[in-house]
Design a protein around this nucleic acid. Structure first.
Lengths: 241, 241
DNA sequence: GTCGCCTATATCCTATAGGATCTACGGTTA
DNA sequence: TAACCGTAGATCCTATAGGATATAGGCGAC
């Protein structure tokens, strides 16, 4: 029984394509607004159009790309200030609840306690790279992973899924955050993790709420700056031929 | 300028297929758990597999169908008791907020006030049919439309989208509700609508919360009954060859 | 009688080709 | 000079065919 059912899950080409595109978007290799040529992408990735279309359809349903019926796909542009605030309102509603539930659940032994302790490790960025750009990527990924893990630890698949959706949208903005805020974020993450591990729902909820509020402020600064940049000088949307 | 940009939006075949499948699932023509044969559906609908795949990929991302990589698609089964409760917890978090915001917004004239008043009409089922089955369908559709409208009136696209996702899942369960609860539901809907039109955020929030709590009880009754039915005698999952 | 293996069929996944549509560019006219 | 229109190119959308895989049923062994 040591062999847990690790069915390789036989990733199909459409799945791999989905992951690849998702990754490229998250890393801003495909920046917001970029045009996605089906024909071009298929050639570039050396696959046919059918699995590519499937991947794009999924990405569209998740809101990461947009589609104009007979005109083509493009990466979803950055959020407006309003949408951004609404998004954080929702996070403030859902994620503290998730943290609270996670803290309740770790008490129960048969809820895979390992997850709870793993949070502590996920709270901080694995390591810094010399290259600032790479370090940035590692941070954004660790950030997303931490929030996703907390959501998963809540024990509610539907809650976890809803949170995951929100965070996917947000991820595009993480790339525009300032590097010095990394350590702050890590400290806040750690506070959340410790509260969960200590089985203190109220503390976990409060810690998460505080983290989100401060995160919102941090994002807002970089956000308005990026918006000011973007308006007069829109990032050239490179087509992928 | 009277001509608002009413671009016919040139529905593609994949779009039409998506709508058709969505409709069939909602009306339980394709019951929960039913196997969806790509090959069979394509023949039945007289289309090719490519647009069908695209539609299925979107439905999967929205959670209405499931996919096992090299085995095929199937309609998402009914929620377990736990998932059901979690879902309502989320609704109780989000929908009262939406109602509150809608009530705030109708005050502002350039927010398309028409929507606010339209809520009153949407609060009740358009009409009863002699056929109980048809009446049931009309009700579930009206119910979903009402909640979606409130969400849209909140003015927050991201909030509306999140609510829409939750309700899509729930819709499968609406079909199993008892007919006599229709009038109760309508009365509660009306209370919400009136509070919003009266521009009373707190009242709207409370009305929505009460509605959801009672709705949860109503669903729970039909739900456990259906679950008991389903367990020993699973609805035959008809393949569409 | 039950379990395990093997073959056959149905289905999924991928690739490619052709018809239909949108976008962009250049020429013409007011 | 600016606006309009027609053509050319690229791109999207759909259909069909072939290779690869999972599932079901039958046979044999224990």
């Amino acid at each position: 029984m040591g062999e847990v059912q690790v069915r390789p899950q036989r990733q199909t080409l459409a799945d791999k394509t989905y992951d690849e595109l998702n990754s490229r978007i998250m890393q801003s290799v495909l920046p917001p607004g970029a045009k996605l040529s089906i024909d071009g992408l298929a050639r570039q990735m050396a696959i046919s159009q059918t699995p590519l279309r499937e991947a794009l359809a999924r990405l569209e349903a998740e809101g990461l790309v947009e589609r104009r019926p007979l005109s083509g796909y493009s990466v979803t542009p950055l959020l407006t200030t309003e949408e951004f605030n609404d998004l954080f309102d929702l996070r403030l509603l859902m994620e503290p609840l998730a943290a609270s539930r996670a803290a309740e659940r770790v008490a129960n032994p048969h809820n895979m306690v390992g997850d709870g302790k793993a949070l502590r490790a996920l709270a901080r960025t694995p390591e810094y790279h010399s290259d600032a750009k790479l370090s940035q990527l590692a941070f954004t990924e660790a950030d997303a992973k931490f929030h996703a893990s907390v959501a998963k630890c809540s024990g509610s698949p539907v809650l976890a899924k809803a949170i995951r959706r929100l965070d996917a949208h947000l991820h595009l903005h993480r790339a525009y955050m300032e590097p010095e805020s990394i350590s702050e974020t890590e400290a806040e993450h750690l506070a959340v993790a410790e509260a969960i591990i200590a089985q203190q729902p109220l503390a976990a909820e409060a810690a998460m709420r505080r983290h989100l509020k401060r995160s919102r402020v941090r994002h807002a600064a970089a956000f308005t700056a990026a918006e000011a940049d973007a308006a007069p000088n829109p990032k050239r949307a490179k087509a992928n031929r």
